[in-house]
Design a protein around this nucleic acid. Structure first.
Lengths: 225, 225
DNA sequence: AAAGAAATATGACCAAAATCATAAATCTTC
DNA sequence: GAAGATTTATGATTTTGGTCATATTTCTTT
């Protein structure tokens, strides 16, 4: 099992602010875990006794609504931490986390990470910064949900996925989502998401190979109202 | 002008974790300000060089959407701090703040509050906790926006206002909002908000006296789908 | 108190999106 | 590789909510 103090992943999250000693201590008690695509990392309402540091892969965070639909609130990717929010407020998880592809994560027990939070000011300030940025992002999503059409939101999601998570060798989006996932990000019925994706295809804004989607006309997608 | 170290308001926000010395230092450089109902406290995109501590009153935080509508994202009330998020990420404000009634606020310059954040671990941890709770709340709003009908969201808002901000002597909601404000919280057209409020009245779920709204049948409002 | 402005209310109509139904394609599993 | 399950696709219909138009009421200002 790798050592935290030598792990490059920490560069991408708040753990970069920890000292070598702190990292060595964490390294001693962390556990590595492989997660298969589709596997639940934690459930909504579950007590998460620590945080996950994502070494590889990507997962979705979602919440079940009263109408039985799962709303995807955020995607968390390689390099980021998962579960800090619940840790900080000392509550059970508000969201469910599901792997969107095979993943490798390290689990750091609550006590260890809390010790650093409560002793290392640099660390807690960095976590605070990440959380403040997440909050701005969430506020922006609220505005989009409330004020934009489904068509516009779906166009935005495609652009976001390309910008944030990149493309494969053939230009298709590297994050592979089902049509239902798209619907659950945008907050619409699966049929509506499928329909709009079909429209985008007819308008030559995108092309599809099975589940894979490739943006063909980024400027055009941006122009969608 | 009052002294921070003697001010009772600090009990309700992260400033309760500051020492007497820290409070005295802040007290020296803070400025008090009265704000009239409807007045803009800060604009979206404005550089806010500090935080506001709300001594009295309530304000709305909103963001202008591309379609020209203002989406209300959050209400901030007496006892809470305003503007920490932008301070922490060192960005201009993402939201506009407008007073919903006459207010009294204290403005604490950025340098002062940052000094405490960077020196007092208790303080930064408390700010972190507040931010984590705000983030959970924002995630929940996203789910509601995406999955619930306008009617249901409006019912929820009325219940939320009663629970969070209380009622006047006659039982009307103490926060006085225009129909447009209701529309901008729920994310709908003003006419739609007015229409649904009229329906609620016909169904005896609420009663109105001019702008004032009184919940008559809380259980019934909760049952709205 | 009257005039004008702004907010609230309501009707008519239209557009967006949900639901229901069914077909076609793709993926699993034996 | 066939059978069944799941996912994607598309049509028909209904519902929700937005837009435009126009009263009516309430609030300001003189």
């Amino acid at each position: 099992m790798g050592k935290c103090e030598q792990c490059i992943i920490k560069q991408f999250n708040s753990m970069k602010t920890l000292s070598k000693d702190e990292l060595m201590r964490i390294s001693e008690c962390k556990t590595s875990r492989k997660i298969k695509k589709g596997e639940v990392i934690f459930e909504e309402g579950e007590v998460i006794n620590g945080v996950y540091c994502i070494k590889n892969g990507i997962c979705k965070l979602s919440k079940l609504s009263e109408n039985g639909k799962d709303q995807i609130v955020k995607m968390v990717v390689k390099g980021q931490l998962l579960g800090q929010r619940s840790l900080i407020t000392d509550e059970c998880s508000n969201l469910q986390a599901v792997a969107l592809c095979d993943m490798e994560v390290c689990f750091i027990p609550k006590n260890e990470i809390m010790a650093d939070l409560e002793n290392n000011l640099k660390f807690s300030l960095d976590v605070l910064k990440v959380m403040a940025r997440d909050l701005r992002e969430s506020d922006n999503i609220i505005v989009n949900m409330a004020q934009k059409t489904v068509r516009k939101r779906l166009a935005d999601v495609l652009i976001y996925l390309q910008n944030s998570f990149g493309v494969n060798a053939d230009g298709t989006l590297s994050v592979l989502l089902s049509r239902e996932d798209y619907a659950n990000i945008v907050g619409t019925a699966t049929e509506s998401a499928i329909r709009i994706i079909s429209q985008f295809k007819k308008e030559n804004l995108i092309s599809t190979k099975g589940k894979y989607i490739k943006i063909e006309d980024l400027a055009g997608l941006k122009r969608v109202e």
